[in-house]
Design a protein around this nucleic acid. Sequence first.
DNA 1: ATATTGGGTCAACCCTGTTGACGTAAGGCG
DNA 2: CGCCTTACGTCAACAGGGTTGACCCAATAT
Lengths: 245, 245
Amino acid sequence: MTTRVPQERRRRRPTRSGVLLSEDLIVETALRLIGEHGPEALSVRRLGAALGCDPTALYRYFDGTDDLVLAIADRIIGEAMAGFAPGADWVAGLREMALRVRAGYLAHPRAAALAAHRVTRRRNEIRAVDTGIGLLLSAGFPPAEAARLYLAFIDTVLSHAATEAAFHALPRQGREADQRAWRDAYQDLDPVAYPALTAVRRELPAMADSSFEQSVDLLLQALEARAPLTRPGGSARPRSAASLP
Amino acid sequence: MTTRVPQERRRRRPTRSGVLLSEDLIVETALRLIGEHGPEALSVRRLGAALGCDPTALYRYFDGTDDLVLAIADRIIGEAMAGFAPGADWVAGLREMALRVRAGYLAHPRAAALAAHRVTRRRNEIRAVDTGIGLLLSAGFPPAEAARLYLAFIDTVLSHAATEAAFHALPRQGREADQRAWRDAYQDLDPVAYPALTAVRRELPAMADSSFEQSVDLLLQALEARAPLTRPGGSARPRSAASLP
DNA sequence: ATATTGGGTCAACCCTGTTGACGTAAGGCG
DNA sequence: CGCCTTACGTCAACAGGGTTGACCCAATAT
């Protein structure tokens, strides 16, 4: 497994350009690079150039690109969940949690696309799991069901966020092509071969939009319907009238 | 500018090693390559070597790596949906569709990691979209809502499948380590700092299991609750009976 | 039989991540 | 204060990636 840098770095030596490298500085610069010049700007060489050091100097701080990406991912999770304090309404809490995770990933699409399907098992992730399961427990779900439902919830949120991030991480060309596809390729179809597509033809351009919130809403609706306790916030959303008492 | 090969290829010319190239042969070889040696084994050069042709010959059939990946994705969809004929029960139809897509991606776990997040805009995908939207229309949803809900449905299915495929694509070592993590790393936690995790401690090993079916069930439950028409199959939802003892 | 052109080949360019050797300066220690 | 160790920044090099343009042969259309 990754032989990470053991402890506090004591000895510092400025680079040729006078910069004092540090793990934090490298991660921050990597995120800035991605934010400014697009997802494909993250490479060891470019990162070295942005830091004003030799690219290979980064290998003194990280075992490789993978290790660096994990460090970035850890920071993203920390940023996303920073200051999150759920209230009494567990449905609203889960929804905000979903939106925070999604925003965190979308803020750094390339890093997210690389680290999306990975279980970090680090502090920030553990804290998030505790928070999420806590919300389901507060809804009255017994422990076993709370754990299972949380898994379904977070897997849905994470995999959707990963999908969106992966799309944003595509090179500009492919991204636009994918969006255009719903207007172009799906428009002139044989009505006999594709009756359903023909029926919803005018709605297809909207398929380029994100389904994240729609999916989360559907999931939360189902969770609320199954919850042993009614939630404190009351039924602010129209669909919950159909839920069980 | 995707200048895809217009129609049937008429002129054939064997490569130096005597192989007759074709779009199908290239895609099949790519899938075999990925299945045998992992996703990183897919490169234009290696694929050329496996086919017994010059690497750049592939550019006569695909605009680039991206185009090839889309063709691979579409073939996986085609394999998964082959022979699928939904009955009157639209919920059951969507569920089978979900399971088929999942099985298709799991059959090629390593290719799925590359392909699952893309819009192929090819024949097999278009047919699948038509089928799925058709099922929602048969449930009585108006066109706009059918399109939006289908997007949420298929995005959930695809992104979950991608997550699972990515896990299955891990080397055996890392997979077992990930599963052990739920027993090990999440077991000895500070009960004060992580109360919820402590409460569900005995259920955590189950977190290593898949949440695919659970998530699909939740989604279908929400869809059924919103459907204008009651479904022909009756309301014998497997969920309530399938809940844990 | 000849003209056309699809498409396989080759060389070249610029990008990537990663490694090993090298040397310099920082910091502990006498 | 000055040595000695070693952290770490630098450099050169390697192997592999995608993609392009020129070249030219042969398969087909006429």
